[in-house]
Amino acid sequence: MPHTQPAPDTGRSPILSTQGLSVHFGARSALDSVTLDIEPATITSLLGPNGAGKSTLLRVFAGVIPPTHGSVHHRGKAIRRPVADVTYVPQRSGADWSFPISVLETVLHGLSRHAPRYRPFDRRQRRQALDALDQVGLEPLANVQIGSLSGGQQQRVFLARALVACGEVLLLDEPFTGVDVPTQEMFLGLFETLRQRGVTIVFATHDLQHAAQSSSRAILLNNTVIADGPPVDILTDETLTTTFQGRIMVFAGAPAKTEPQGISPS
């Protein structure tokens, strides 16, 4: 039985929801019977080991992967293709970082839906992109080639590309991976600012500390929902052991941290 706590009754209808969602890739089941409501203007973290279905769930919300069974909704409307108001920030490793484009041009990709075909981006759109870069502290590097940035800076470019077009939902896949501590703190602060502006944020992570620090709700996922609720309530020895299949060490008084591979508790 999942350890779920009822979501606080805010009187608002959910912005994203799934009902009995299952996703299969051939014979493999990536997600099984997931039923969730995500409230508007909240920060939710998805926690689980590799292959738990975190990215799959984000990609279902992004409208990229269709449910095999069950349904997924954005503001009560079934998601069948990518929705303009839902912005997805993929993992950094998927992009070709040797590509000959600048930081600013990459951020402008976020506006490509709105750009006319017959001419370049105009001054106002470039200003918007520079503002987004400013929010992640990269405006001075606007004209640098993306491949020459550090991993953390590349992740900030991706975040800026999402911010420039930011609708009401921001989905982030492993935003903290390979990112230094100051950048992590900048992201956490930015998420809170965006939430106060009414943006709903859902991010996938391996790191229990980030989940505990930044989100009001954590969802422990391993093919299905293991636990769901405020991090302080649901991040227990029992739920973590179930989620991470025993690959977890929790130190008393210290934030819990997942082990990369194969270290089992006694």
């Binding site: 997805y88 993929p90 484009i101 990459t106 990709h109 490509s112 075909r117």
Partner: peptide, 21 residues
């Protein structure tokens, strides 16, 4: 020229391209 942005985005970052519709 007409599809330059789409072809560029699809060549650079396929995961983002897909999510951008």
């Amino acid at each position: 020229y007409w599809f330059r942005r789409e072809i560029t985005i699809v060549s650079f970052d396929r995961a983002f391209a897909e999510a951008a519709g």
